[in-house]
């Protein structure tokens, strides 16, 4: 019962490009919160995209409970929350529509994330990054979700919003026994929220 990355290699199809990731291994168990830190440009976001199925590795596989991730149908059990919420919400849809696009979101989540009913009819450009990120978190927590990949999800938020969001996510992860992969440049943050910290091994 785990999410496993087995010797993942990934490169963009451009001539002469060296791989972004090479031979990366990672295991994430339910209930675990693994911190991932590495300098900019080392492929942290790319690793998240591979684990969530947004990109396919050139070599290696992503296994969920021993089965390749791409064999799962319906909502992907591995969900990713992105660094810049304003880039992953349709600017032409009211937030309430974006929120429920992949199935209705539990009322409880909206309350816990302090999403005001008035925000549901607003458009992404009318709300701040912290408010948008709450929507992104709520829609990533569908009933099928078992692993959450958090890619610098609070880097652009102020400190108080950051603690509010982590306070909620840690409670939710514990309640549902979710596995979390947490990418951040902030060492104090990782020490605070993670059960273990793994550094992305540098490319040889």
């Amino acid at each position: 019962m785990s999410l496993e990355a087995k010797s993942l290699t990934f490169r963009y199809r451009r001539r002469g490009q060296s791989p972004v990731l090479e031979g990366v291994n990672l295991t994430l168990e339910p209930g675990e919160r693994v911190g991932l830190s590495a300098p900019s440009g080392r492929g942290k976001t790319t690793l998240c995209k591979l684990l969530a199925g947004y990109e396919r590795p050139v070599q290696g596989t992503v296994l969920l409970d021993g089965r390749p991730l791409e064999q799962y149908k319906g909502a992907c059990p591995v969900q990713m929350i992105w660094q810049h919420p304003e880039t992953v919400l349709d600017p032409l849809l009211p937030l309430g529509v974006s929120l429920n696009e992949a199935g209705a979101v539990e009322e409880r989540l909206l309350e816990e994330l302090h999403i005001q009913p008035g925000w549901l009819t607003r458009y992404p450009q009318e709300l701040s990054g912290g408010e948008l990120q709450r929507f992104c978190i709520a829609r990533a927590l569908g009933p099928a979700t078992r692993y959450l990949l958090c890619d610098e999800i609070t880097a652009m938020l102020d400190l108080i919003t950051q603690t509010q969001i982590w306070d909620f996510l840690l409670r939710e992860a514990q309640r549902r026994n979710l596995g979390l992969l947490i990418v951040s440049h902030s060492a104090p943050l990782l020490e605070r929220v993670c059960t273990r910290i793994q550094s992305l091994s540098p490319i040889p």
Partner: peptide
């Protein structure tokens, strides 16, 4: 004070509201 207390190394304490 709340900002300072919200730093991960200083308690990571949230206050409610926006």
């Amino acid at each position: 004070r709340a900002l300072w207390a919200a730093l991960p190394q200083n308690g990571f304490t949230p206050i409610p509201g926006t």
